[in-house]
C-alpha cells in the first residue's frame, strides 16, 4: 500500500510537470488555454490525492477551489477575453520551441538537484513533491519570459501559481486559511490583469507587450 500511495502521488506530480512542458510549446492561444485547464485539473487531482493520503479534509477544499477557479472560471473568461479582443488567430513565440524545451529540461534537472539535496532528511514523498513543484514554478516563469502576448503571460503566471499550490499541498500541516487567501489573491490578480488587458487594448489596439515598449520610446 505504501508503495502504491507513493507511486500515485509521484505520477500526478510528474504529470503536472509534463503538462507544463506541453504548455511551453503551444503557440495558439485557445490550445494554450485548454492545456492550462488540463494543468489545473491535474493539480486538483494531485491535491485531492494528498488530501486522501494525509487524511486532511481541508485539502479537498483546496482541490475544489483549484478545480473551480483554475480549471473552469479562469480559462473560460480568458476564452471570452480572447474572443472579444479578436486575437485568437495570433501565433507567437519569441524563442523557438526547441531551445525553450531544452531550457525547460535544464530547469527541471536543476530543481531536482537543488531540492533533493536540500531536503535529504525529509519524508521522500514531500521531497519529490517539492522538487516537482519547483520545476513547475520555474517552467511557468520560463513561459512568462519567452512569451510576448499578455494573455499567455497571464497563463504563465497562473501555472507558476499552480506550482506553489502543489508545494503547499505536499507540505503537511498547511492551514486552510493560507490556501484560501492565496486562491483569492490569484483571483484578484486575474481580475486586475483582465481589466488591464482591456485598457491596454483600448489604448494601443494590441496586447503585444512589445508595442508598449515601443510606445515608451524604448529602442529595441
Amino acid at each position: 500500500m505504501e508503495g502504491l500511495v507513493f507511486d500515485i502521488a509521484h505520477l500526478l506530480a510528474g504529470s503536472l510537470v509534463l503538462v507544463s512542458f506541453m504548455m511551453l510549446y503551444q503557440d495558439r492561444l485557445y490550445a494554450l488555454l485548454n492545456v492550462f485547464a488540463f494543468h489545473a485539473v491535474v493539480l486538483s487531482l494531485s491535491v485531492a490525492w494528498q488530501a486522501y493520503i494525509q487524511d486532511a479534509p481541508h485539502l479537498y477544499v483546496t482541490a475544489l477551489i483549484a478545480l473551480i477557479f483554475k480549471a473552469i472560471i479562469i480559462p473560460l473568461s480568458l476564452h471570452r477575453i480572447i474572443a472579444r479582443l479578436g486575437i485568437h488567430r495570433e501565433i507567437e513565440t519569441v524563442v523557438g520551441v526547441v531551445p525553450t524545451m531544452l531550457a525547460g529540461m535544464g530547469l527541471v534537472a536543476l530543481s531536482l538537484v537543488v531540492m533533493l539535496r536540500a531536503t535529504a532528511e525529509a519524508d521522500p514523498l514531500a521531497r519529490e513533491d517539492l522538487a516537482f513543484a519547483l520545476s513547475v514554478l520555474l517552467l511557468g516563469l520560463l513561459m512568462m519570459v519567452t512569451r510576448r502576448n499578455a494573455v499567455s503571460q497571464v497563463v504563465g503566471f497562473m501555472s507558476l501559481e499552480n506550482g506553489l499550490i502543489l508545494a503547499a499541498a505536499g507540505a503537511k500541516g498547511m492551514p486552510l486559511v493560507v490556501e484560501i487567501s492565496v486562491a483569492f489573491s490569484v483571483l484578484i490578480a486575474f481580475i486586475v490583469i483582465g481589466i488591464f488587458l482591456f485598457r491596454i487594448r483600448e489604448r494601443f489596439d494590441t496586447v503585444d507587450v512589445q508595442t508598449l515598449d515601443r510606445f515608451r520610446g524604448e529602442k529595441r
Partner: peptide
C-alpha cells in the same frame, strides 16, 4: 521592458539555484 524585467528575475533566480546546486 517588461519581458526583460521578467527575464532578469528569472535568470537571477536560476543562477542562485545553480550556485546552491554547485555549493552543497
Amino acid at each position: 521592458t517588461i519581458r526583460r524585467y521578467l527575464g532578469l528575475v528569472f535568470f537571477s533566480l536560476v543562477s542562485l539555484l545553480v550556485v546552491l546546486a554547485l555549493w552543497s
